[in-house]
């Protein structure tokens, strides 16, 4: 049952209103995008779709997305007035309706370099669904690793071997690729904290050109 909650989930989070999906969910999407990008953000473009577009301003979805990208939490009372200050980031919002997209969806482009698609699925739950064209399903429930690499035989086993050698259990693993021998992505959910040394060892594997350790979201 996907909506199943823990007791603490039911009586949380402490958040700024007004909507779990359109405000808290949007902050969480921003926070995940920040984790995934893992670098200095100079410029960001948000395209809000459908319900995010039509009711987003009333729900502060635009403010919430930016807040998450700045690393602010869902309970940060500065969110309401976020547009009144300068953060050294150039940002832009676009609001569109596209029935091919989920009801509460957003596309985020960071520094003209990385494109992240995400959606808010209700009750504050979110999912990053695509990064630079690769399908992923990052919900923020696990500490996880995201790799983008050249699709060659043996990469998966090299990576899982490094993980296993550190005694870490893999909760789930999702791979995708464009064409054979082209670009591939690997998303690995872990049952432990993210070990910086592990991330750095994986980064050193040849043919992997992007590695991100994504910390799970606070509930």
């Amino acid at each position: 049952m996907p909506g199943r909650k823990t007791l603490l989930d039911v009586i949380s989070p402490i958040m700024v209103g007004p909507s779990s999906s359109h405000t808290a969910g949007a902050v969480r999407i921003g926070l995940m995008a920040r984790e995934i990008f893992n670098g200095e953000i100079k410029k960001v473009h948000f395209r809000l779709y459908n319900s995010f577009a039509t009711t987003g301003k009333g729900h502060g979805t635009d403010k919430a997305l930016l807040a998450g990208l700045l690393g602010w939490g869902v309970e940060d009372v500065r969110i309401k007035d976020i547009f009144n200050h300068d953060y050294g980031i150039e940002y832009e919002f676009e609001f569109v309706e596209d029935t091919n997209k989920p009801p509460n969806a957003v596309r985020i482009i960071i520094n003209d370099k990385m494109t992240i698609r995400a959606e808010s699925v209700g009750s504050g739950e979110v999912a990053v669904t695509n990064i630079n064209g690769f399908n992923v399903n990052i919900t923020g429930h696990y500490n996880s690793l995201l790799l983008i690499y050249q699709d060659l035989p043996g990469v998966i086993s090299k990576v899982t071997d490094l993980i296993q050698r550190r005694g870490v259990n893999i909760a789930s693993l999702l791979c995708d690729r464009d064409i054979k021998g082209g670009n591939a992505s690997m998303y690995i959910a872990l049952d432990s904290d993210i070990d910086p040394e592990l991330v750095s060892n994986i980064r050193n594997i040849e043919c992997i050109y992007f590695t991100a350790g994504i910390r799970k979201l606070k509930s």
């Binding site: 039911v10 009586i11 958040m15 700024v16 209103g17 909507s19 309401k80 504050g124």
Partner: peptide, 18 residues
């Protein structure tokens, strides 16, 4: 009303029913 004005609330179980 705090929720509607983007104040800090506790979702219990949701923001709308806080």
């Amino acid at each position: 009303e705090e929720n509607a004005r983007m104040g800090k609330i506790v979702a219990c179980p949701t923001a709308g029913s806080c």
